[in-house]
Design a protein around this nucleic acid. Sequence first.
DNA 1: AATCAGTACAACCGCCGCCCG
DNA 2: TCGGGCGGCGGTTGTACTGAT
Length: 214
Amino acid sequence: MGRAPCCEKMGLKKGPWTPEEDRILIVHIKKHGHPNWRALPKQAGLLRCGKSCRLRWINYLRPDIKRGNFSKEEEETIINLHDMLGNRWSAIAGRLPGRTDNEIKNVWHTHLKKKAAAVLKQNQKANTNTNNNNNSDDHKQNSKQNVDSFESFPVIDESFWTDTSLSENSSNLTSDFGGGLNEFAIGHHDYGGGMDFWYNILVTSGADSLTLPF
DNA sequence: AATCAGTACAACCGCCGCCCG
DNA sequence: TCGGGCGGCGGTTGTACTGAT
């Protein structure tokens, strides 16, 4: 028997999300968490499949998403990690707080791939010049050291966003939208550049305040 | 000003592995 | 032990944007 389609196509919307859909999803997850993605759209009143909701939340709506260009350090990290791990985007994303696997995948395919290829070519050229015992093991070893050096990164795992953390952590934390919206931080989490988005959600929702789940 | 090519990125698709009944 | 449901993942596509001609 064939596998059931990921969602019933009948009547379910596809394509770009509207601000209103975003707002509904955010409000619902803030209130109820996401114990069951498949059931979520129905409960929230969204004409989307669960996968679409999950992707939208993970890749765009989660408040810990870091927006904006990748720094040089981040790009180097991605190149090193890709060298070590291959196309394991989620594993790479786990080492880059605030970045999603989708975002990393995109940035890799758009320009880092070329960059890495250029570096590789350069290295190969250098290697043929110096010839000898260079071996890829040395290279791997160096890469591994680079990777190991990121072990201390604060990795935000999925448990951070569980229902419990959402409901408990959000209960007494309300972000202050006064003042500059371009930079804000709570504890050690830096949300630079992301507040315009949350401000828009607040405005379009018509609410007086928006409590963020962190 | 119009057109085209390249780039960026959001979103979808289908497969895979884990978990639970 | 097995099969189905589900979430997660990587590959791919579609489209908006931007710069060059």
